[in-house]
Design a protein around this nucleic acid. Structure first.
Length: 772
DNA sequence: CAGTGAGCGAGCTTCCGCTTGACTT
């Protein structure tokens, strides 16, 4: 039996700490919270002052049993959960569940996993801070009340299985509000001018300068008039301004900034980033990946300095400590950094290598000197106009941290290219080689990506590092939003070019509104959002979380009693729940679109049991109305009568093949061609169900038949050797079996297959995973 | 694998924040 039992939250942390503490200490982990409000019931006794009813979840029972056993055999139990609201609550629950004596149990905390920090913590044990625990209980109870009282309203008034919550509902609101800004956006255009100027400088060298006109022109006529002015003007260098500048490195990663940069630089989804980071953490290669702190331990600062000095020289080293300024940060951990700065790369999967390198670069760069720049602006003047052209250039005089890292931005702006400018002098004459006026359209505000939504949530203080990825996944799995692409639309842009005193006009085309992997609100998300914003405006307010956080802080400071705070919140809240329950009709978002000009029947759009539909005709006893599903890229809010009518054109017959009809339709899995009972999917981005021809339909059928031939390696009747997504495999009775390494799938006989099947042991009955 | 769209009613769904494994022929 052990003298000292130390309980931390994470098993990887336990492993590290055990090394620092030596033989008399056994370090184990609670794997996070061990107790929570009951899973299926409200778990709050409202009439008893909001008394929480806690229970140990089934999947935590095993951990709890083990901890109990270890604790009863230990002389002293040390609880080293994180020093934040949740960590303090974990400590309190541990004491209660393990039946520990609070007066002898030692609560210790450290913010970094270094030998000094831990030994110092052991010397300064304290007791559990009940004020902090109460702040957590208030947080927990409030979230449960909001989630478990509003969600059932949605089941009754909108659709079953939907959900609402303090965090997810505001996340959806951000997307809906943004979508409406985009819908209401009216694009404007103006002409921007740029010129290519030539001249000879003092050294007798020919130079060229690319410069942008400082003035924009609202229309083609104005642009042309100005180009006429240009053609009769003399140009010269009017002014040269050289300004020094510096650029400083970004702080080391927190969860949110890691998710953003891994998305921008590596194309990782937020869930992917977290799972790769988890691997690196478990392998001891990086510090904890769920953190809101930009703080680095003094050990980290020192080793970073050493590595930078040996690798790049001391003039590249500058030790910095960054202040965390995100709302509601609790700073229980360090920033995300490599455990060992001297390891520039790691073994592991490609993704692990890439993410590790990103973390290494960002952390190292944060400890390096500023980059020194020289920004040059050359102003070009005209003899017959006040309008000027400017050429901007930037030269890096000293690269500093830029040597290892440069941060990416969300907006790609090609006009922003910084170049080195040639040497010129004031009043030097310039001749315009070409001056081009290009029509430029303004863009609506951008749609959110997973990563930019996380950034916005963090700015609003909504959600925590451990929940950003789950929030993104929840709002998608409820069907409120979806990550989608859009091909965009071509539009014409006018370009006027002045060259050799002549103006020519060309019409070019550009693609506008192209989207890749963006979050789009879906109809059900919009309906739920509108219902919630009108019935629960306080909770849907962007500042709701920040406001209640202030109250939680008051509780943590011992100034407010938590039951009182919850009670004050609950009274008006519960009244809103009752009011919303009293609404009679279901929210279907129904909207009339007009009448079908052919039949005269009314056309409407609404949310049906199975998704958004357009409906032709009223429901009456003699005749059922016709229904058609909306396409994935259509919204109930914006669909037009014309678009609705088009949807009724499917399914349609496009011809015949082998004496059977070819019917095109759109089903559960997208557009298809149906032929003698079999379905053939249309190619996304290639085929369009409204225009596809008989010829192309037949092509799809023959292509699929070819593919199926390739799929079968060997066919022994009830046993087949097939080519699958993960390589060759054996299939029998709808069960699949892996082919052992080293055997050639081409040469497997039926007997070989049977022995492989036998060896692989009994198969579980195929589990049907629940949809959604 | 390629439907459905009404209404009845039983029984289920649901929150946020801590943590890691399951699972992938």
């Amino acid at each position: 039996m052990t003298e000292n039992l130390v309980i931390v939250e994470s098993p990887a942390k336990a492993k590290t700490i055990e090394k620092f503490l030596g033989k008399e200490f056994t370090v184990v982990s609670s794997f996070g919270h061990i107790r929570d409000l009951s899973k299926n019931k409200l778990g709050i006794e409202i009439e008893k002052g909001f008394k929480p009813v806690y229970e140990v979840p089934a999947d935590k029972q095993k951990v709890v049993n083990e901890l109990r056993k270890l604790a009863s055999g230990a002389k002293t139990v040390w609880i080293a959960s994180d020093e934040d609201r949740e960590g303090e609550a974990i400590a309190w629950h541990l004491i209660a569940v393990l039946g520990l004596d609070p007066s002898v149990t030692r609560r210790i905390v450290f913010h970094e996993i270094t030998k000094e920090a831990i030994t110092r913590a052991v010397e300064l044990p304290r007791q559990v801070d009940m004020n902090l625990v109460n702040a957590q209980q208030a947080r927990r109870v409030l979230d449960r009340l909001v989630g478990f009282e509003i969600s059932p309203v949605l089941w009754k008034k909108v659709q079953p299985s939907l959900s609402a919550g303090r965090v997810q509902s505001v996340a959806v609101r951000l997307l809906v509000d943004r979508e409406r800004e985009i819908i209401g956006f009216v694009s404007d255009s103006a002409f921007k001018l740029s010129g290519l100027f030539m001249g000879t400088n003092k050294e007798g060298k020919n130079v060229t300068l690319k410069a942008e006109c400082a003035k924009k022109f609202p229309g083609e006529h104005e642009a042309k008039t100005f180009l006429d002015t240009c053609s009769s003007s003399a140009f010269s260098v009017e002014n040269i301004s050289v300004k020094p500048g510096t650029r400083s490195p970004a702080p080391p990663f927190t969860t949110s900034t890691l998710q953003q940069e891994a998305y921008r630089k590596l194309g990782f989804s937020v869930a992917q980033t977290m799972s790769v980071a988890q691997k690196l953490y478990e392998a001891g290669k990086i510090t904890y990946m769920r953190t809101d702190s930009t703080n680095l331990s003094s050990l980290a600062l020192n080793t970073a300095r050493e590595v930078i000095t040996t690798e790049y020289g001391s003039k590249y080293s500058r030790t910095r400590q960054f202040k965390t300024h995100s709302k509601g940060a609790q700073e229980a951990h360090e920033a995300i950094r490599p455990t060992y700065f001297d390891k520039k790369d790691v073994a592991g999967s490609n993704n692990e290598k890439k993410l590790y390198e990103l973390i290494w670069r960002r952390a190292i760069a944060s400890q390096m000197t500023d980059a020194e720049l020289e920004k040059t602006t050359i102003t070009i003047g005209m003899s017959n106009s006040e309008v000027t052209f400017t050429a901007a250039g930037e030269v890096v005089l000293f690269d500093g941290f830029l040597r290892v890292y440069s941060e990416s931005t969300d907006t790609i702006n090609s006009d922003d290219e910084k170049t080195i400018l040639p040497r010129v002098t004031r009043e030097m004459p310039l001749i315009p080689e070409t001056i081009t006026a290009t029509q430029r359209f303004t863009s609506p505000p951008p749609r959110y990506t997973e990563a930019s939504l996380v950034k916005k949530l963090e700015e609003l203080g909504i959600g925590r590092p451990s929940t950003y990825a789950p929030i993104i996944s929840t709002i998608q799995s409820r069907g409120y939003v979806a990550r989608e692409d859009r091909p965009g639309e071509k539009r014409d842009i006018i370009q006027l070019t002045l060259a050799k005193s002549k103006i020519s006009r060309t019409v070019k085309s550009e693609v506008a509104g192209k989207e890749k992997s963006k979050l789009f609100p879906k109809d059900i998300g919009i309906i739920v959002n509108d219902f919630l914003t009108s019935n629960f405006p306080d909770i849907l307010d962007y500042n709701f979380t920040a406001d209640v956080e202030k109250e939680f802080d008051e509780i943590a400071a011992g100034k407010v009693e938590w039951g009182k705070m919850i009670s004050e919140f609950y009274m008006p809240f519960h009244k809103s729940v009752d009011v919303s329950l009293a609404i009679r009709e279901r929210m279907t978002g129904a909207r009339s679109l007009g009448n079908d000009p052919v039949s005269g029947l009314p056309v409407m759009v609404k949310m049906s049991k199975y998704g958004p539909v357009v409906q032709l005709g009223e429901a009456n006893p003699d005749k059922k109305p016709r229904f058609a599903n909306l396409r994935r890229d259509q919204l109930m809010e914006t669909i037009t009568l014309q678009e609705a009518l088009t949807l009724f054109e499917l399914p349609r017959t496009i011809g015949s093949f082998e004496d059977s009809e070819l019917i095109v339709g759109v089903g559960k899995f997208g557009p298809y061609v149906k032929h003698s009972g079999k379905f053939y999917s249309l190619k996304r981005g290639v085929d369009d169900p409204y225009t596809i021809t008989e010829e192309r339909g037949i092509e799809l059928i023959t292509e699929k038949r070819e593919g199926e031939k390739m799929k079968v390696i060997n066919d022994y009747g009830d046993i087949q050797v097939l080519n699958g997504r993960y390589g060759p495999y054996i299939t029998m009775n709808k069960n699949n079996y892996r082919i052992p390494k080293g055997s050639d799938p081409q040469k497997l006989t039926k007997e070989d297959c049977l022995s492989i099947i036998e060896k692989s042991g009994p198969k579980k009955t195929t589990k049907r995973t629940k949809k959604k």
